[in-house]
């Protein structure tokens, strides 16, 4: 078990935030020599345009970062404007990102990221929207008011990653049982320690 424990801290520092890694492959990989993918460039341009629209609409710098994964733009939104931004994307006639395909969360060394994948069925385009929260006191406003379908998804992220969703009507553990301690999908979680304490050996 000690091997496991030693590995974890080592692993974390060299994780570059993947979003930026795609966009700027210059980081440290060998692929730096390759010319930038035209799809990524185009998607980034779309993303920048959307950032401008969003920021203008909300009157603040809501979008803190723009990048792309292949041909899909990625917008990272300030946590404070998370709900407003997503609501705008959903309701605005030009955007009409009304279908939330995927909801996920990822644990990074310094923050936890919530990702949603929005689809505009009308325009047949897709978009990643993200927000970040600190790891220790992970709180993110809930999207349940906008999309009823994120109810269980948020519960799952709460259960496995320990992110509290403010305004969620029914924030309980969903996969693990009530009384379980720890958040399994966090990188510093060890499945083999403190089982009794967690309520594992029932």
């Amino acid at each position: 078990m000690s091997d496991e424990d030693n590995k974890q801290p080592e692993k974390q520092p060299d994780v570059a935030p993947p979003a930026t890694a795609t966009a700027k492959p210059a980081a440290k990989s060998a692929k730096a020599a390759l010319p930038p993918d035209p799809r990524v460039v185009a998607a980034k341009a779309t993303g920048e345009a959307m950032k401008a629209t969003l920021d203008k609409q909300l009157g603040v710098t809501a979008v803190v970062e723009v990048s792309a994964s292949k041909d899909v733009p990625i917008l990272v939104i300030d946590k404070a404007y998370w709900v407003q931004a997503v609501q705008f994307l959903r309701d605005d006639a030009l955007q009409s990102y009304d279908y939330l395909r995927m909801f996920s969360g990822t644990d990074y060394p310094n923050y936890i990221e919530i990702v949603i994948h929005l689809v505009s069925r009308k325009r047949n385009t897709a978009l990643y929207v993200k927000t970040r929260t600190e790891r220790d006191l992970a709180v993110v406003p809930s999207l349940t008011g906008l999309f009823q379908g994120v109810n269980w998804e948020e519960r799952e992220v709460y259960d496995l990653l320990g992110v509290h969703f403010e305004g969620h009507p029914d924030l309980r553990r969903i996969m693990m049982w009530e009384g379980w301690k720890g958040y399994p999908l966090r990188k510093d979680y060890s499945p083999f320690e403190d089982l009794d304490e967690r309520g594992g050996n029932v």
């Binding site: 570059a16 993947p18 979003a19 890694a21 795609t22 492959p25 980081a27 990989s29 692929k31 994964s69 292949k70 899909v72 990625i74 395909r101 995927m102 996920s104 990702v115 994948h117 990643y128």
Partner: peptide, 19 residues
């Protein structure tokens, strides 16, 4: 390659996606 990728396919019960 480093980055994030999502693809959804039409599974027999709906959109089956891997991120």
């Amino acid at each position: 390659p480093a980055g994030e990728y999502y693809r959804g396919i039409e599974g027999s019960r709906g959109e089956l996606g891997v991120y």
